[in-house]
Write a protein that binds this DNA or RNA. Structure first.
Lengths: 138, 138
DNA sequence: GAAAAACATGCAACTTAAGTGCAAATCTAT
DNA sequence: ATAGATTTGCACTTAAGTTGCATGTTTTTC
């Protein structure tokens, strides 16, 4: 359990009990989680605390928010290697319209996009909607 | 004004007064509009009516919804040519983090993306965040 | 052209995610 | 151990989105 503690400290987050648990929760999950998902996994803790915890994680660069078109924010850990944060980790997100789950396809980077003159790109989000492998088999 | 009426009829939408006005409003605007934006432009009409009108437009393929990460849905006309709807009009959206405006860059198509085995793509959204040309000059 | 059916509009209310204020609890450093 | 800072939990607020229903308007049918 000291491993997670190290990760949090590296991101300048004080390793409280809830934070350790939430990190573990997110790490053991392979799909992005809504605040409701997280809430369901932590009956004991308050919604606000979980909300502020995930926002702290986000601010410190531990997780990133994903907008998959459902209108509900989802969150996923920034990198599985738990190493230093990549400055431009512009992977794509896949949202399954059947099971409603969203995953980071970290191996699939966003190709270079040319913009009109005068436009400056700071960040990118590529969202692909469709049917995931699991739902495709059914 | 009969021109807009034709467009609506072509999309099987009955051309009521509000619908004509909203179409005109969206056409004369070069950035995507939130429901609040639309509301501000139509003091007379009710929020619900405007909401249902934009949803009707969306359902009939006249407008598309844009999620630019602000958490508030924006809408823009599907095609400027007012012709038949392109089945795969996968252009990209640019959201300016300074002026908060979002535009469709219809000339900039999304490049082909390869997905993992078993994944089926139905739709795509590419959102670029940065500074638009107007804000860049300031 | 009147009556019936279908659709559009406006008002009020509800739902839900997100966010804030504040006091109590916990942790950190001296 | 105590003072200061941070975290947590509860209650409340905000705002977007949505629905139910009654009224108004248009379209269709005879």
């Amino acid at each position: 359990m000291g491993e997670i503690e190290e990760v949090l400290k590296k991101h300048h987050i004080r390793p409280t009990a809830i934070r350790l648990l939430m990190y573990k929760y997110l790490r053991d999950r392979n799909v992005a989680a809504t605040l409701n998902d997280i809430e369901s996994g932590f009956d004991k803790s308050d919604r606000t605390t979980l909300y502020r915890t995930i926002k702290t994680f986000e601010k410190k660069g531990l997780v990133h928010q994903i907008n998959d078109g459902t209108g509900i924010a989802k969150y996923a850990l920034d990198d599985k290697t738990t190493g230093t944060t990549a400055l431009q980790d512009l992977h794509l997100h896949f949202h399954c319209i059947k099971c409603n789950e969203t995953v980071c396809l970290t191996d699939h980077k966003i190709p270079h996009i040319s913009l009109p003159k005068g436009y400056l790109s700071k960040d990118m989000n590529l969202l692909v909607k469709g049917v995931c492998d699991k739902c495709n088999l059914k």
